[in-house]
Amino acid sequence: MNIQFNKGALELCVLALLDKTDRYGYELVQKISEQITISEGSVYPLLRRLKKEDYVTTYLQESTEGPSRKYYMLTDKGREYLRVIIPEWQIFSSGVNYLIKEGTGNE
């Protein structure tokens, strides 16, 4: 798999997962790795970068089981950015799908 293209996908996945609800790091990692194989540790550098770019903010919240967890919350800027990259991704992936169909489909 071409990692260059996956990198953007990972960013999109993280932002999309935060759209409806705030989540903690471990949860994000699990959700993503349920669907795609990732080197899980690279989600954390990504989260730090997203925070630095003001796409997400963090806060600590006590958990019922054990110590407090760091939650990630999408900012308005992050949400705006997500609204831009989702259609871009959809156009891209439907383009790829079309080409796959044209290239390998047998009529």
Partner: peptide
């Protein structure tokens, strides 16, 4: 850096 930072394992 954004492009190459490894996201997925090569599989």
């Amino acid at each position: 850096a954004k492009l190459v930072k490894g996201g997925l394992k090569h599989e």
